[in-house]
Design a protein around this nucleic acid. Structure first.
Lengths: 110, 110
DNA sequence: ATTATTTATCGTAATATTGCAATATTATAA
DNA sequence: TTATAATATTGCAATATTACGATAAATAAT
């Protein structure tokens, strides 16, 4: 096959998975870290920052955008990309919830 | 191609990406949530919990284990699987760091 | 020893991802 | 209008992922 059986899982599970999947590539982690490091949102130099060809970077940006991780708006010739706090806070809450609950578990057999 | 150019990115970026990728499937999100919900680590019923065939579940468990998200040990006929707090705390720290830094940014043009 | 139970592996088909060259699109500048 | 610059899309090849039937391996129970 090759297609996930998304219909068998909850919307929340599919949403978390889609966002995690989008972050599941080192180039896209690098993009996220770069967007976090710059103070302004005018990010027309993302292509120069990554060791990948321009179409490849454009494709990675598209995937991050589709997953809601970043937002983009036209800013003249360049495109302005920024992180989407809403999406990232969902992931933050997910992992914070997990780590808190793991600590509360006394059984740890593995 | 189809192979990520991991050598161009930092170990940290590759580690985050590998773990995020492992969580980037709704069945694996469901597995994580199930492991979090049960009190004991003896988890021989994961197959029955998911709407997927046994070999598929086994494959998903293997990927989570390879990424370090879960740990497993033999427990008689069954296999004992648990979440790995170390790996999950790395992801927790990553996303907590991002959300904190986003809040500190005053520019938000998108 | 034989059977039942549980999990892993193999093989394979369908689909998705990754990467880039070539090209298209869009907006600014001359 | 005609360049120039920045980003997007298309097309394609190489590889990876997803899913499952069939089968293997390992342990427990009879």
């Amino acid at each position: 096959m090759g297609a996930s059986k998304t219909e068998h899982f909850s919307d929340k599970q599919n949403q978390i998975a889609a966002m995690a999947k989008a972050i599941g590539h080192p180039a896209r982690v690098a993009i996220i870290e770069y967007l976090l490091s710059v103070d302004t949102c005018i990010c027309g130099d993302i292509v120069n920052v990554l060791p990948l060809a321009q179409p490849t970077v454009s494709q990675h940006l598209k995937e991050l955008k589709n997953a809601g991780i970043i937002k983009g708006s036209i800013e003249g010739t360049a495109i302005c990309y920024c992180l989407n706090p809403d999406a990232l806070s969902v992931l933050d809450a997910f992992f914070a919830h997990i780590t808190v609950h793991i600590k509360n578990k006394n059984t740890n057999c593995c």
